[in-house]
């Protein structure tokens, strides 16, 4: 599967709606098979989603995202795990190991996620 993470220096971008730099990572059996950076500066919000879709991205791991933009992304067929914070490599590591927990959520968002190990459950249920 291919996933995209908006990045800002070494960190996940705080707001997906305003993010233009993406790491697109291809995972094969829990290993990173490919990892590329894309600069989508100058593209509109819709164009960025279209572009990621054209790259075959199936999931976005990101920080805050507005409800409206979330709907647009979901309609394009890409799934989203939002409200994440932290270093991009840390998040990627815990996602691959199924250890993505509420500890990686942005402040004020823990009430939104009741499950403790969101990554593992999400992946097991959706990516089979």
């Amino acid at each position: 599967m291919k996933l995209a993470i908006p990045y800002w220096n070494d960190w996940i971008s705080p707001v997906l709606d305003e993010a233009y730099h993406f790491r697109v990572i291809e995972l094969r059996e829990d290993d990173i098979a490919d990892d590329r950076a894309y600069d989508l500066s100058g593209k509109s919000k819709f164009e960025r989603v279209q572009y990621l879709r054209s790259l075959g991205v199936e999931m976005i791991l990101c920080g805050a995202v507005s409800n409206g933009y979330m709907q647009v992304i979901l309609l394009s067929g890409i799934r989203v795990i939002p409200w994440l914070r932290g270093r991009i490599d840390t998040i990627l590591g815990v996602f691959i190991n199924g250890e993505l927990s509420t500890g990686y959520l942005m402040p004020g968002c823990k009430r939104r996620r009741k499950r403790r190990r969101i990554g593992k459950h999400f992946r097991e249920r959706n990516l089979r």
Partner: peptide, 25 residues
């Protein structure tokens, strides 16, 4: 305004709490 309780905000990076359109750029 942000919906973030003080106890979760204090100590966190401001951009993860504030999440403004200009934080990154």
């Amino acid at each position: 305004i942000t919906g973030v309780p003080e106890e979760e905000a204090v100590g966190s990076f401001c951009y993860n709490v504030f999440r403004a359109s200009i934080c990154e750029t």
